[in-house]
């Protein structure tokens, strides 16, 4: 009965409010660590890459600093992040690494200046907290991509190159190999998501993304299968999976198991598919993003088209 009204409301959510300006040669990129600590040397490859792409780099105070497992106290990490959000010269922030800690500072940050003068926020894993906050509160796109720690092991590979292309404004488009569990179909919607544990940890908070009508991307690392099952049941029971436009599954790598326990009895792809079995939207497994060698950049919060056929998957930024 209310279908038309609901669709009208949903329309607001199908385009981003503002798109941060793409970068031009000579622009300044800031590097900060909002979570785990990172040695100064581990940023070297990232700095070289950014400079080679024609950008200037500003290292934050948290880079190379350490407080327990963090790159600084909550106050120090928040202040460094805040400085970079507010600095009009900085056109993009590439996070040093993930780990744990972004959720401890996200609510203390002031995004007012960022909202007037948005910039690209680039990272993944623990940075899912930033992606989710910015998507749900500000509807501004962000970049899900490798961070300085990942570039430590290779700054000239295909994954790093997608950061270069994303920052200068190329439309990103990826084709993915056939996967036996894929569900064929095509859809359009805003691309949202990130690390599954963090997406589950946002539920019930103001950073919880409305996933209805969206293409959801998920990945995770170093979790037990039963824990991933539990998180997916939570997303499912919270009604977040039944009205997706599509699902893109990235890496679920280095999964943990206790040798004394019998195996869980299902592989991760089956566990994921079980939660969306009753729906009809396209599902694309094996997308090259996550905690793995290939971690291609995804522009979260921007409209995408997902096409899954017998020949494989295609995820295209519109």
């Amino acid at each position: 009965m209310n279908d038309h009204r609901i669709k009208a409301v949903r329309m607001i959510d199908t385009v981003p409010t503002l798109i941060p300006p793409y970068l031009r040669p000579g622009d300044l990129v800031g590097i900060t660590c909002p979570a785990g600590y990172l040695c100064l040397e581990d940023t070297q490859n990232a700095v070289e890459a950014l400079e080679k792409w024609g950008y200037r780099v500003k290292l934050g105070k948290t880079v190379g600093a350490q407080y327990y497992g963090y790159s600084g106290t909550d106050a120090e990490r928040a202040a460094d992040f805040q400085d970079m959000l507010d600095d009009p010269q900085i056109k993009a922030i590439l996070f040093g690494r993930g780990g744990y800690g972004t959720v401890r500072i996200i609510d203390s940050l002031d995004f007012n200046r960022f909202y007037r003068d948005p910039k690209w926020l680039c990272g993944y894993s623990d940075i899912t907290v930033v992606h989710s906050f910015v998507q749900s509160q500000l509807h501004i796109p962000t970049l899900h991509c490798e961070m300085c720690i990942d570039l430590k092991y290779g700054n000239a590979d295909a994954s790093a190159d997608t950061i270069r292309r994303a920052l200068r404004g190329d439309k990103l488009s990826y084709s993915v190999d056939v996967h036996p569990m894929n569900r064929l179909g095509s859809c359009e919607g805003l691309l949202v998501g990130g690390n599954l544990s963090l997406l589950a940890a946002m539920i019930g908070s103001s950073s919880d993304i409305d996933m209805d009508g969206k293409i959801l991307f998920i990945e995770d690392v170093h979790e037990y299968l039963y824990r991933l099952d539990e998180m997916l049941w939570t997303l499912g029971r919270a009604g977040k999976l039944d009205r997706l436009a599509g699902l893109v599954v990235g890496g679920f790598t280095r999964l943990k198991y206790d040798p004394e326990d019998p195996p869980f009895g299902q592989e991760i792809d089956e566990i994921i598919f079980d939660q969306v079995r009753a729906a009809r939207f396209p599902v694309c497994f094996g997308f090259p993003a996550g905690h793995q060698f290939d971690n291609f950049s995804l522009r979260l919060g921007m409209p995408h088209r997902l096409l899954v056929t017998a020949k494989g998957g295609l995820l295209q930024e519109r």
Binding site: A200, W233, T234, R237
Partner: peptide, 10 residues
């Protein structure tokens, strides 16, 4: 408890 967040069992 956190796994019940956002669900009818919360």
């Amino acid at each position: 408890l956190v796994s019940l967040a956002g669900t009818i069992s919360q």
